[in-house]
Amino acid sequence: MTPLQNLGRIDRRWLFLGMGILVLIPLLFPLHLPITPTATSIAFHRAIANVPDGSTVLMSCDYDPGTIPEMVPMTRTALRQLWEKHCKVVITVLWPGGPGLVDRVVAEVAAEYPDKKYGVDWVNLGYKPGNEAVMVLMGQGILTAFPYDYRGNATRSLPIMQRARDYADFPLLVSISAGYPGTKEWVQQVQARFHLPMVAGVTAVSVPEFYPYVQSGQLIGMLSGMAGAAEYEVLRKESGEASRGMDAQSLAHVFVALCIVLGNVVQRDVRRGDGS
């Protein structure tokens, strides 16, 4: 048996160990690989920069703890950019596992801006079942769809909601989404129907699905996974979790690529051996 054929019978736990080491090392000792923002990330940043100062923006955080490394850095950076423009932020969550996480993330960022007050500068409307039905219902009136916020306050009584009655009151929708319901449904049900300008932050695995919407102009900008979040941090001159995670992700991608190449070389050797 050749060394290559031996390699083909490698215990997969060695592969797990290799992946673990390659992810761990750059997290402990950063490589500081260069991060160059792509056109879609620049467009995302520019779309928020172009929102009139002090306006009220709708932000839908449709994810749960499974996608924290990709979604949370985007959420943090977008909130910082919006609040530095003195924008008010109305937050919705259409994933049942998400409200607790999103509320914590928003509260952490809000703590960096002591002048930002709940109910005045931001509100978390929380989770509502119904997926697309909720999106369309919000078009009839945000207060109708969400009579109470995540904390149990009557939304009618909150100052921020006095200027957020329906989609026409928002200059931009920021969709941070990890799947269904998420960006695709917001485009189909809200952007196409109510013509609300929209940007999105999506998981890397779902990026191909959204390129047609970027090219058609339905998505003004897009952040693609953790790489997009890191590019956004670079554009904002922040050193956040996504930038730190990109070294680890780079090495993990190289390892997977090597596995594909090596796996095929081994297989080819095995087939040649069988043939002879």
Partner: peptide
């Protein structure tokens, strides 16, 4: 939510990286 659901949910996703590496080696022919 914070100590059980959140870490377990994140762990399930984190495990994907290891299985993708294994699948890339064995199945991507």
């Amino acid at each position: 939510y914070d100590t059980l659901y959140s870490p377990m949910s994140a762990t399930m996703f984190g495990l994907l990286a290891f299985f993708i590496a294994s699948a890339a080696f064995r199945a991507f022919r």
